[in-house]
Design a protein around this nucleic acid. Sequence first.
DNA 1: CTGCAAATTTACCGCTCCTTTACATGCGAG
DNA 2: CTCGCATGTAAAGGAGCGGTAAATTTGCAG
Lengths: 224, 224
Amino acid sequence: MQKMKILIIEDAETVRNELKDFLTAYGYEVEAPDDFQHVLSYATKEDIHLILLDINLPVFDGYFICREIRKSSQVPIIIVTSRNNEMDELMSMNLGADDFVTKPYHTQILLARIDAVLKRAYKQPEALSLTVGELKLHLANGTISYKGGHQELTKNEFKILHYLMVKKGSIVSREELMEHLWSSDLFVDDNTLSVNVTRLRRKIESLGMENPIETRRGLGYILS
Amino acid sequence: MQKMKILIIEDAETVRNELKDFLTAYGYEVEAPDDFQHVLSYATKEDIHLILLDINLPVFDGYFICREIRKSSQVPIIIVTSRNNEMDELMSMNLGADDFVTKPYHTQILLARIDAVLKRAYKQPEALSLTVGELKLHLANGTISYKGGHQELTKNEFKILHYLMVKKGSIVSREELMEHLWSSDLFVDDNTLSVNVTRLRRKIESLGMENPIETRRGLGYILS
DNA sequence: CTGCAAATTTACCGCTCCTTTACATGCGAG
DNA sequence: CTCGCATGTAAAGGAGCGGTAAATTTGCAG
């Protein structure tokens, strides 16, 4: 399995660093930012595979953050809580969280939970690649292949194709894609998306496949 | 979502029956056999969607059963355990179980876990659609289908049909539709609506269906 | 039947949305 | 530093959506 990247959202610096060291030691890549303003932009990054979310945060409530993440991403979330009552458990489950851990926890249990959730989320034998027709997108190294040929994708091309593949069969509005590619506080011309789509189409066509990214004028793009 | 069938593997008859009644009340189909010799044949049945497995069984250990099931099936398994130590949690996770619940548990928590696991395992691409007669409007990709044929709709056509379908059976005035299609500050000729309705009718008829959009002269349109 | 308003239909074409090419910038590897 | 690649911007081109106008049809009232 590819190297998994975990995002830690936790306000206590000591806990954060301990966790980071611990998980790094066990072979995970870890992001542990200390600014909670921009935590959401971290969370929706492509390369985050799991989020460890402390529910007990200052400023934004962890519940709020969880919901916000779920609006735009299905990345697995494990909620860490010190509130040890059932309501929390229930609410956590309804928030779209994948699991939760109650403090204090044994580190080995945390590891087991993480493993389990990751396995669940990314286990499908072909979870390492998505397909449209005979076109394969390899998640591990960001390449596409078609009938023997292959091409490397840039970050943007990957994000676009990945998102469209996940939503295969549904129209994805340009707006939605824009939000997925660029944090909303960054102002990027709408045309830039078009350019990136063109570049992606070029690469796919260079493999001999006819363009699978359909444009629905005024609505968005759709992969079929 | 279809009706889900849960298999309970539990030795204590009272618990078994309580669980069965409880889950049945919440809309699940439940199998709760009392013979543990043949539990494995139950477990691998096609129509079992989830297994609730008590780890603390006589004769066969629950661990053994879990492993056996996993040899031949990927059906989701939730392990129920009263042993409240870490080893159990760890081992359960490594058995291929999808989740576990520690006794004593609150029934609402059990429900939440079951829901979560089922949702993960059987989430479908949700073919959300509205219908009139045999005509289907697919919300995800903005197409209509009728007896195997498909047609793509433009933005306006989609809006019109969608609105009429939502209000199926009642008359929708032209003014109401106009407001729904164009922001009121934009002045669009009344005739434009007629043209768009015509275009929509064309596409529906091209699928071999007779026009379902009835005009009530002086009142509006109605879908029947 | 006649007249008129409402709705349909056809044809046209402008304008928005999207594509595409070319160029500028900037960052990372060596 | 310098080269190369990724990526954003600018500008020109194109295609089809969809609005307009005019002709035609439908339906209702007197």
